[in-house]
């Protein structure tokens, strides 16, 4: 039976059912790990370690989860806090080999798709870290602006401003691709 997040959390907290929590981990592992890889500059090992720690921390804090926000928002907030805290403690080092490998793994078959994906990557890289994170959370993950602000621990107005500026920049950089799709 495929329970929703609330049902699985209830089982994990009230019955101590760790299998229910395992279902939550399986449900969100790919998206969280992918998001953290971007946040960690392509360092897959670090991103996976952070994701693992986030899931463990979330499990320990699960009895205190009141359900005001969605589980995914709450989990993301924990993960972002962990990564930011790690970044504060350590000088950020970009593992270029890991970045290249991650990009090589992204197999896009058609040449046009590949070119567009590359342009999209470049456009995203041209954004500031905070703009990229805001766009990733709101447009790629589908979090609302309020949820994005909650995860990033920023005021709502600031997040909206980051998203608007990033969107304007992306629009100017990707307009040819967008027009090609719109015009067929």
């Amino acid at each position: 039976m495929d329970l929703d997040d609330e049902g699985l959390i209830r089982r994990a907290v009230e019955n101590g059912d760790q299998r229910a929590y395992a279902q939550l981990v399986r449900r969100y592992q790919s998206q969280l790990r992918f998001s953290l890889r971007q946040l960690c500059g392509g360092d897959q090992g670090l991103a996976d370690d952070m994701a693992q720690e986030a899931f463990i921390k979330a499990y320990k804090a699960l009895p205190a989860f009141r359900g005001d926000a969605r589980f995914s928002t709450w989990l993301y907030r924990i993960a972002y806090n962990l990564v930011m805290s790690h970044k504060r403690k350590n000088t950020p080092e970009v593992d270029q080999e890991a970045v290249d490998k991650a990009q090589a793994d992204e197999s896009v078959e058609e040449a046009q798709q590949l070119a567009m994906a590359r342009d999209l990557d470049s456009a995203m890289e041209s954004l500031s870290d905070v703009q990229r994170q805001a766009i990733h959370l709101s447009l790629q993950r589908g979090f609302s602006h309020e949820e994005t602000a909650n995860i990033m621990k920023l005021p709502l107005g600031t997040v909206k401003s980051h998203i608007n500026r990033a969107r304007a920049k992306l629009r100017s950089l990707l307009q040819p691709w967008h027009e090609e799709v719109v015009n067929g």
């Binding site: 760790q18 929590y21 395992a22 981990v25 399986r26 592992q29 790919s30 790990r33 992918f34 996976d48 994701a51 693992q52 899931f55 463990i56 499990y59 320990k60 793994d105 992204e106 896009v108 798709q113 567009m116 994906a117 999209l120 990557d121 766009i135 990733h136 447009l139 790629q140 589908g142 969107r167 992306l170 629009r171 990707l174 691709w177 967008h178 799709v181 719109v182």
Partner: peptide, 30 residues
């Protein structure tokens, strides 16, 4: 444009196989 951008961002995102990740998390739980 937002919908198109959102779609493009999601299209480029691969699904990451579990590869023992879930087991490692579960082994570390109290």
């Amino acid at each position: 444009f937002d919908a198109w951008l959102s779609e493009q961002l999601q299209l480029g995102e691969p699904y990451l196989d579990d590869n023992g990740f879930c087991d490692r998390v579960m082994a570390e739980l109290p």
